[in-house]
Design a protein around this nucleic acid. Structure first.
Length: 414
RNA sequence: GCGCCAGUCGUCAAGCGGUUAAGACCUCGGAUUGUGGUUCCGAUAUGCAUGGGUUCGAAUCCCAUCUGGCGCCCCA
């Protein structure tokens, strides 16, 4: 035999046994998001590399080491590692800023990140996400979080923990970063290598380092005081407070996590994550926040925006697997032409029906019927002569003759 | 990119230096030639991720590669 070819590392087939689950996720997304006025947008799977460098941020790991980038006709193109940048590009390019705000969009589809695969992490994975443009008020943040919670609910996921935080605006965050850097400066040599790196790149990410020696440093009173301080400016604080009030009113439980820092550079003010304890170390199913300066940074008019994305594979790993659905009927017959006609009749009436295409013996056909269908529709010589179909309920073993031209309306009653 | 663990039939696995490489499920065929899902019989890995090595002898030991899992990093 010829050598077989395998799927590439970090990618997976979605097999027929799995696809009903995916269909459910997609159907619920359409239903739930539509109720809030969100419309689906589908953007290309690859974009010009510069979009992600400018959009996601060139200090991020995603852009620095995880992108699938290739050259074609002297242009650098990249398989999308996330979809916010693409949606924003489309928003600007299609003049959606001229539409009446808010502009509410949702998407689903594959994303690509060159990372070491592990549980809940693949190189090709799928996200569903929403983006809302044009609303600076905290009600937008609240709606988007509510939408996430309700989508999860529609999937039977009720007990996930919502974590929120405010990163402040660029101004107050910059001041905070500088304070952190200042207070940690004397300890710099004692930080772990990762933290030394983060010190310059993104000091906010220092804070949830898991290395014990770093944790100990952050516990020192004078350092802890700075870390714990409410650094955000008045306007940001008010925005954050209003968001929390909305969430309280809506009965959405949340935990404030000062260490929550989304890794993408574009976030400001609100950031949030929804986590599960049943996912191992890749425990976030949903992550998002506000990104008021991204549209402008990508060349559009100043437009505030909020959104989130969920990892569909992670969602699926939390949902109990669905039972395989059986056919409505399986026709047992030694007259393929008659079986064809009956099958077509029932299929046109909306039933899921199959029959044997391989001239198998009667007993084999019946055995097959019992495995794959709720009813066996027996169409033998006797039945053809008398213009009937013997319908056998395979769960109860009850069998009845049904007049051929009433079969569609009656076989399910046996 | 780094560290640790693992890889035996379509699936779940036993075997841990000398076996014809167990067993179960699935699939297929037969027992019964118009009644299945319960029963009985049979078929299905010259092969143990791939490639090297050690050994009289390797699925079993060693090395490399590939893939998966866990952790770090990061993120959904």
């Amino acid at each position: 035999m010829a050598k077989i070819i395998n799927v590439v590392k970090g990618t997976k087939d979605i097999l027929p046994a799995d696809s009903p689950m995916w269909q459910m996720l997609e159907k619920n997304a359409l239903e739930v998001f539509s109720r809030y006025g969100y419309k689906e947008i589908r953007t290309p799977i690859f974009e010009v590399t510069e979009l992600f460098a400018r959009g996601v941020g060139d200090t991020t790991d995603i852009v620095n080491k995880e992108m699938y980038t290739f050259e074609k006709s002297e242009r650098s193109l990249t398989l999308r590692p996330e979809n916010t940048a693409g949606v924003v590009r489309s928003f600007i390019e299609n003049g959606m800023a001229r539409l009446s705000a808010p502009v509410k969009l949702w998407y689903k589809g594959p994303m690509f990140r060159y990372e070491r695969p592990q549980a809940g992490r693949q190189r090709q994975f799928h996200q569903v996400g929403v983006e809302m443009f044009g609303v600076k008020e905290p009600a937008a943040d609240a709606e988007v979080i509510l939408l996430a919670v309700n989508y999860l609910k529609s999937l039977g996921l009720n007990d996930l923990e919502v974590e929120i935080n405010s990163l402040g605006c660029p101004e107050c965050r910059e001041a905070y970063k500088n304070k952190i850097k200042a207070v940690l400066k004397p300890e710099f040599d004692n930080l772990c290598d990762d933290c030394k790196n983060r010190y310059e790149k993104n000091p906010l990410r220092l804070l949830d380092c898991k290395v014990e020696s770093c944790k100990a440093i952050f516990e020192k009173p004078e350092i802890k005081a700075v870390i714990q301080s409410d650094f955000i400016c008045e306007a940001c604080a008010e925005h954050y407070l209003k968001l929390k009030n909305y969430l309280d009113e809506l009965g959405i439980k949340y935990v404030e996590n000062k260490l929550l820092v989304r890794g993408l550079d574009y976030y400001n003010r609100t950031v949030f994550e929804i986590k599960s304890n049943n996912l191992g170390s890749q425990n976030a199913v949903c992550g998002g926040g506000r990104y008021d300066s991204l549209v402008r940074n990508l060349g559009g008019e100043d437009t505030p925006a909020v959104g989130w994305a969920m990892g569909m594979e992670r969602l699926i790993s939390l949902i109990p697997s669905l039972e395989a659905k059986k056919l409505d009927g399986y026709i047992v017959s030694n007259s393929p032409a008659e079986a064809f006609k009956l099958a077509e009749e029932l299929r046109n009436a909306g039933f899921e029906v199959e029959f044997d295409l391989q001239n198998k013996k009667f007993t084999k056909q019946l055995e097959k019927a019992s495995k794959v269908a709720d009813y066996a529709l027996i169409l033998g010589e006797d039945e053809i002569k008398t213009n009937t179909v013997s319908v056998k309920n395979l769960a109860t073993s009850i069998q009845k003759a049904v007049v051929r031209n009433k079969i569609g309306s009656e076989f399910k009653n046996v």
